[in-house]
Write a protein that binds this DNA or RNA. Structure first.
Length: 847
RNA sequence: GCCGGUGUGGCGGAAUCGGCAGACGCGGCGCACUCAAACUGCGCUUCCGCGAGGAGUGUGGGUUCGAGUCCCACCACCGGCACCA
């Protein structure tokens, strides 16, 4: 192989050791006065080697990090590993590997691959979450929440994955199945640790407005839906023979007069209490029902087609306004952990209540006349082509019990005492006033978001830093004793069996109480790994500080993250948790901001033949093989050129060969350009200079708009223009050619670091091009003397004309009118109007 | 069911403001170089039509001098949530 052929393998070998020596992406200079940017890629889970998804994500993150660096910013772009979690543990169970050793090997493999992939990471700031030096601060964080009353333990019906034998957070249950393994999730009553994320629901929702335009709309919408704020009222009902009033939440307090029964969730404490006060027969039926419900998987439960089931508890609630006796039922369509676990059933105006009423022949009372015109709103009467009103065929009868259709729309209140005649909105506010005046209710909000279940019954995670004393007290492990390190996995049975394997590590679990030294036991559960990742972006700012989780001065220097890059699969998991923890840290005075990630880029997936790649489907594209065949730069460039970064990339549509050819074309230009470094480009070919400066002017806006594919296309255009100049009149010695090739190299430095560096060297510069700095566009070169104008007749293009850029409107119109194509098209018709947009367009309106 | 998104050549995609539809590339076709090929370079490539010309951004309508872009309705596909009261 000679020096005259583009040889990616040789170029890769040449530059890696150079970069290792000059560390182009170090950020350790405290005196660096440049403005700063923090670009962060979601850190990977270290299982196996990097795959195509990583390659895509890091290619994009690098474009941004390298771009800001060229723009004169001091850019922090660190990497680490989210190294706790199930895969390491499962590998341990399957192959008898030590999770710590398995993890360390994978991290080393990742590091090698990332280095080869030429990611612009600062290698002095790496971290991994299974490092005691990291999870010490995870435990610190847990205790901060605990002290603030934001971490607590409670017994509850939790999501349980029967395969992984562990609890799951709500966010980890997807369509009723375990997010990880796809097994149908069941409910299990367990005492578990929670973080009070629901207390932050309003802030998590409202602060999304700040992120508008900088986070993808899709993610904002998903978070809003997930938090699921509903506005309505709380209404209190007496229950005969029950010690206290029972509150229910409703979004339709206006329909309170239509409530004909009450339903409580079978797995709620209230249901158990009410059943215990009922007849022996009811108690038996309730027990049987509760067991049926408990056996059901989440997938079955979520089936909306399912017919309604339930049990009459034989108890009666008292309607707070009418004093009517309403039967109390229990049914699994009411959820124990939403609102108050009980609802007032208004079958006439709620489809679920109606389905239930029809199944058990309960009364239905209409209180909103949805056929009546709404007060304060002009009724809309449809009209036919002649403008005559079309008389309605006749309204559907207001008889939901017969039709099976609940009347959920707006209308005029009826059968509702003082509310009669009002519209829905009016009636809602009036009813809230009434309830408040009578002391039996109030305006209220409810959320879909539940508290975050953070304990897990697995080995490979951060131990929860709590000790349980013999008399049942929870005692936080004192700070000086942190970290509570994991015991060695040697000798422990890690097979999932429903309780934490740590409980069997007798030497580890039995400790003296931190209070009085009496025998006590460590909490044997570990933390959800989403706790680890909820604050790691702060640890990068002072990754080796063993006195504090993060250095405040460094936080002020770098945080929050300016651009976060990662997959959309974290839209409501990691991203919600990190936002929550940031707000907690703000409230506790640890950070001066409330949102962790200023801007977010969700890259799409790399798929093959329209389907997600997977080993089992056999449609896997192996990154290392692609890199071997086409080289790092071609793969990176092909990723960036494939389409908008947020769209999925089907690898069958991608041509790394095409990318390679383009890189070779660009590289060849750097070998051919003859002008010496520093040659004044001013006398050079003007047309090529214009192309060069158009690129310099446009590329920054395109990068910032994340249109990487367009930037690459523009680089290809500039390369084609330079090729033509070399082969044409200008020739290889023209200084404009050198200027263009330098610009191509600079542009390529965002996408193809090896080739760019090689071109830079060919052009006679020292490494590293990554820090060479962007060139400023010369605006005067962008001004055109003449413009190709378009001439339309009735909006259709009929001809084109070259005109002076400053052509006067009347002159422009006259020239356009005389064009042969235009004259022919107009013929002898009269020109009624001419729209003139000098110097770009004339449109003659003829008729 | 609720919330939202997307429909542009054979394919991936481009088109700051309503103003040349299809940039750039893949694939295809052709030419030059070569004994031949590879490489490379150049040209053509939305559809119909020999051509002049006509049609064209999911479908139907509307606004406008002018619509891929704005408005209304519909169709198709995709995503999120899902008995959340």
């Amino acid at each position: 192989m000679t020096d005259e052929t583009y040889d990616f393998a040789r170029i890769q070998q040449r530059w890696l050791p150079v970069w290792d020596r000059i560390r182009p992406f170090a950020t350790d200079d405290e005196t660096d006065a440049r403005p700063r940017k923090y670009v962060l890629d979601m850190f990977p889970y270290p299982s196996g080697d990097l795959h195509m998804g990583h390659a895509e994500s890091y290619a994009y993150g690098d474009v941004l990090a390298r771009y800001w660096r060229q723009q004169g910013f001091n850019v922090l772009h660190p990497i680490g590993w989210d190294s706790f979690g199930l895969p390491a543990e499962n590998a341990a169970i399957k192959r008898g590997a030590d999770p710590a050793a398995w993890t360390a090997e994978n991290i080393e493999q990742h590091k090698r691959s990332m280095r080869q992939y030429a990611t612009a990471f600062d290698w002095d700031r790496i971290l991994h979450t299974s490092d005691p030096a990291y999870y010490k601060w995870n435990q610190w964080l847990f205790l901060e929440l605990y002290k603030a009353g934001l971490a607590y333990r409670k017994p509850s019906n939790v999501n349980w994955c029967p395969k992984d034998q562990t609890v799951l957070a709500n966010e980890q249950v997807v369509a009723g199945a375990c997010e990880r393994c796809g097994t149908a999730v069941v409910k299990k009553k367990l005492t578990q640790w929670y973080f009070k994320i629901a207390d932050y629901a309003d802030r998590l929702l409202d602060d999304l407005n700040q992120l508008e335009g900088r986070w993808p709309d899709k993610v904002l919408r998903m978070q809003r839906n997930w938090i699921g704020r509903s506005v309505g009222a709380e209404v209190e009902f007496e229950i005969e023979g029950h010690h206290s009033r029972v509150p229910v939440f409703t979004t339709r307090p206006d329909t309170l007069y239509g409530a004909t029964f009450m339903v409580v969730a079978p797995d709620s404490d209230l249901a158990a209490e009410l059943a215990s006060g009922a007849s022996p027969e009811v108690r038996m039926r309730f027990q049987a029902y509760l067991e049926d419900v408990g056996r059901m998987t989440e997938i079955d439960r979520q089936n909306a087609e399912r017919t309604k089931t339930g049990v009459d508890l034989g108890r009666f609630a008292i309607h707070p306004l009418t004093g009517e006796r309403l039967p109390v039922w229990t049914a699994d369509y009411v959820l124990a952990d939403y609102g108050h676990g009980a609802v007032m059933a208004v079958p006439a105006h709620d489809q679920r209540d109606l389905d239930f009423a029809r199944a058990f022949d309960l009364p239905v009372k209409v209180v909103v006349d949805t056929n009546a015109a709404v007060t304060g709103v002009l009724p809309m009467i449809p009209i036919d082509d002649e403008g005559n009103a079309i008389e309605p065929e006749g309204f559907a009868p207001l008889d939901p019990k017969a039709t099976g259709e609940a009347l959920t729309g707006d209308g005029r209140m009826m059968n509702s005492g003082e509310l009669d005649g009002m519209s829905k909105q009016h009636a809602i506010s009036r009813m809230v006033q009434l309830l408040e005046a009578k002391g039996v209710g109030r305006a209220a909000k409810s959320y879909r978001l539940r508290d975050w279940l953070v304990s897990r019954q697995r080995y490979w995670g951060t131990p929860i830093p709590i000790v349980h004393t013999a008399d049942g007290q929870e005692v936080p492990v004192p700070f000086e004793q942190l970290p509570v390190t994991l015991p060695s996995s040697a000798g422990l049975d890690l097979t999932p069996k429903g309780t934490s394997p740590l409980g069997a590590a007798e030497d580890w679990v039995n400790v003296p109480s931190p209070i009085d030294g009496s025998p006590a036991r460590r909490d044997a559960d570990t933390m959800d790994t989403f706790v680890d990742s909820s604050w790691y972006f702060l640890r990068f700012l002072s990754p080796n500080d063993d006195t504090q989780p993060f250095d405040k001065a460094q936080v002020e220097r770098w945080a929050p993250v300016d651009r976060y890059v990662g997959g959309v699969e974290h839209a409501i998991l990691h991203l919600l948790y990190a936002r929550f923890i940031t707000k907690v840290l703000f409230d506790l005075g640890h950070v001066p901001f409330t949102e962790p990630f200023e801007a977010l880029l969700n890259q799409g997936m790399v798929i093959l033949d329209g389907a997600k790649m997977s080993k089992s489907k056999g449609n896997l594209v192996t990154l290392s093989e692609e890199l071997e065949q086409y080289g790092v730069d071609a793969v990176r460039l092909a990723m960036s050129f494939a389409g908008p970064p947020e769209d999925d990339i089907d690898w069958k549509d991608v041509s790394p060969t095409g990318a390679q050819k383009f890189l070779a074309r660009a590289w060849r230009l750097s070998k051919e350009s003859l002008a010496k470094p520093g040659t004044d480009p001013k006398p050079g070919d003007r047309a090529l200079r214009r192309e060069t400066h158009r690129f310099l002017a446009d590329a920054p806006g395109l990068v910032e708009a994340l249109k990487f594919n367009v930037v690459v296309a523009r680089l290809m255009e500039l390369t084609n223009a330079a090729r033509k100049a070399v082969d044409g009149a200008a020739g290889a010695a023209d200084p404009a050619v050198r200027e263009a090739v330098e610009t191509i190299a600079l542009g390529l430095s965002l996408f193809a670091p090896y080739t760019a560096e090689e071109m830079w060297a060919n052009l006679g510069f020292e490494p590293s091009i990554a820090n060479a700095g962007w060139r400023k566009a010369d605006r005067s070169l962008l001004v055109q003397q003449t413009v190709t104008a378009v001439v339309q007749v009735n909006g259709k293009v009929r001809d084109r004309i070259e005109v002076a850029a400053d052509v006067a409107a009347d002159e422009f119109e006259r020239l356009a009118r005389e064009l042969p194509g235009v004259a022919r098209s107009i013929g002898d018709r009269e020109v009624r109007q001419a729209i003139v947009r000098a110097p770009r367009l004339v449109n003659f309106v003829v008729g």
